[in-house]
Amino acid sequence: MESFTYLLVEHQLIKTERLILRPITLADAKDMFEYASDDDNTRFVFDTHPTIEITRQKIAEFFVATPTGKYGIEIATTGKFIGTIDIRIDPMNRSGCLGYALNKDYWGHGYMTEAGFAILDLAFQTLQLERVFAMHDVRNPASGKVMQRLGMTYEGTIRKSRYVKEEFVDDAYYSILKEEYKAK
């Protein structure tokens, strides 16, 4: 089997019915800053960006420096960059961790679920992973609903799992196995 890195690079552009998942560049800074500077959007996931220059730095350091498995979410008909989705691979355990962020102006339209299914297809069909998991701050149940719509099963809550924005947070964990995904 080919390496996970090679397969992710080979599949760095994914098209769905309404979306294009693609590499993130500095050209996305304006659209990313639109949501990364909004406390409602960043409350549970990362520090709010005070300036567009910080957004540009974060793009360079996180998305451009190590782009493999990280995708910008673009609406196909308009070209609007509305969020990110990524899968981090644990090769030894043939598993992946799914993460995402979406501009609140696009919540409730099924975009994240659509992007999530595209990444699960990649994970189970192309990468042949055995398990994909995700977690969310328990104070953000909407993120858990996305995981449920993706067919993930709640596994439990890890108390004080992460230190975010100067406080410890509890994370709810969900996962889906290859055989469960293929059965759907």
Rank of each mutant, 00 (worst) to 15 (best):
Y163Q: 09
P91S: 01
D38N: 15
G99F: 10
L102P: 07
Y174V: 10
R159H: 13
E2P: 09
P23T: 12
F81A: 02
K145D: 07
G116R: 06
I14Q: 08
T157E: 11
D31W: 07
E166W: 02
Q12A: 01
R139A: 04
Y173I: 10
L19V: 08
V9L: 09
G151D: 13
K15P: 00
E155K: 06
V138G: 02
G72Q: 02
R159F: 14
T78I: 07
T126C: 09
L129M: 06
A36G: 09
P23F: 03
E167V: 07
D31G: 04
P141D: 11
Y174W: 14
I52E: 14
I24S: 08
R43M: 14
D28C: 14
Y71E: 04
R159G: 05
G99Q: 07
T78W: 11
T77F: 01
L8D: 07
T84K: 11
M147Q: 12
D170S: 14
I14H: 05
K30G: 06
E2G: 01
E17Q: 14
G144D: 06
D31Q: 13
G108S: 01
R162Y: 02
T68Y: 02
A29N: 00
L102Y: 07
H49S: 04
A27Q: 15
K104V: 10
T68L: 00
I54C: 01
L122T: 09
A123M: 06
I54V: 15
E114V: 03
